[in-house]
Design a protein around this nucleic acid. Structure first.
Lengths: 226, 226
DNA sequence: ATTACTAAAAGACGAGTAA
DNA sequence: TTTACTCGTCTTTTAGTAA
């Protein structure tokens, strides 16, 4: 279970950088200023930064007057893991979210991927149902986009990529949810970028038919009610 | 600014205990199990627990088969501080909350306290207005009680206690908010216990008159929109 | 099995220094 | 001013042990 764990001191340092805005862009930092804010010597601060860089948790541009630091995706993921743990402590298990969006037409890619056995089997194993060959695509309303972002801090189920039919199928992740009581899951490619206002949903049955949905219809997606 | 700072290792250990449920009651832990979950030796785990106990961040009952640990209020406060920092990282400054409740009659104590100069002056200085002599009391609806709990993790403004008129006036804290656009603040005694479903609100003007409120009327309190 | 001590080993810290 | 090295010191860790 425990494969790798960030050191407590490194985490503390990473968090300090994130608090300065390191997740949103480059922030100026010097060993001295960082050291002061963490109550450690500039030397130690310098060493911490080197350590974080070696772990690719931050990236740096070193200048004569200090350094410009950005928290990498890996670093941000680490912080989100931590954040999620605090949410578990204080918000218990009622991590309930509701996304609202409107049905839109997809590109038909979902239908294809859902038919690939390498994916189907994993969904069956990990979600408890084999997906209907087709996905329901929703365009989220602005408020739900914010909620959607917060979902990145809770636990998704990993779907492993594989090779088949002379091509590569990438990693994905999914999050169980419900629409009008139907067990579904939000599916997302892990690596390639995906529009933040769109979610793609799979279920055991065709949701359009089952719920009589048409493009433009409003749909509520409930997460964490299981 | 930096008076005291919990060590990163101690924090990590405290968090692990909280994740086991240490904030909600006693949890069984042994040096070995704790060590395994933190990837440290049982000896180090033991030392960490001793350290946390010395800082009164946890309390322990040691038995031949392990120990029963509870996170103290101080320990929980420390974890909340940490949680709040992660919220700042990921939720930015839009820490927006809405409480909904119904107007109820208070005991008239609010009116008295708001007339005490030692409090009035502090409210003027720290909130930017001198409070109307009287408070608006709300009974929160169940959902808002949950939201109310989360407010404990964000930053309140401290109001210092003092001695005057041959008695002691205790510490308090307040949180700026708005009702129908009016700048207000939730006020709460720091030490004495206060019902979790009641909030007491002050403003520059009498809100009952200004908004035409009567007992039982529903009111929305917005926090973090400033 | 525990906790928690002592003592040896390991590792982190910060002063000094160079660039 | 920086960063980041070396090096002596000091702290922390863990093994071993007792209770």
């Amino acid at each position: 279970m425990m494969i790798y764990m960030i050191l407590a001191e490194d985490l503390q340092c990473l968090k300090a950088i994130a608090l300065l805005g390191g997740c949103r862009g480059s922030v100026w930092v010097s060993s001295q200023t960082l050291g002061r804010s963490l109550d450690i010597s500039p030397q130690t601060a310098s060493r911490r930064l080197i350590s974080l860089e070696r772990q690719t948790l931050i990236s740096r541009a070193i200048r004569p007057d200090g350094q410009y630091i950005t928290v990498t995706n890996l670093g941000e993921a680490e912080l989100k893991r931590e954040y999620a743990e605090y949410m578990r402590i204080f918000n218990g298990d009622r991590k309930r979210f509701v996304l609202t969006g409107n049905v839109i037409s997809g590109l038909g890619e979902g239908r294809y991927y859902m038919s690939v056995p390498g994916y189907r089997q994993q969904f069956q194993d990990k979600l408890g149902f084999a997906p209907f060959p087709g996905t329901l695509n929703l365009r989220l309303n602005p408020q739900s986009i914010e909620t959607r972002k917060r979902l990145d801090t809770i636990e998704w189920i990993d779907i492993q990529g594989f090779n088949a039919e002379n091509r590569t199928f990438g990693d994905a992740r999914c999050l169980p949810c419900r629409i009008a009581g139907h067990p579904c899951a939000i599916v997302l490619p892990t690596r390639s970028h995906y529009p933040e206002d769109i979610v793609e949903i799979i279920a055991e049955t065709g949701l359009r038919d089952a719920l009589g949905l048409q493009d433009g219809d409003s749909v509520e997606v409930e997460i964490g009610y299981d």
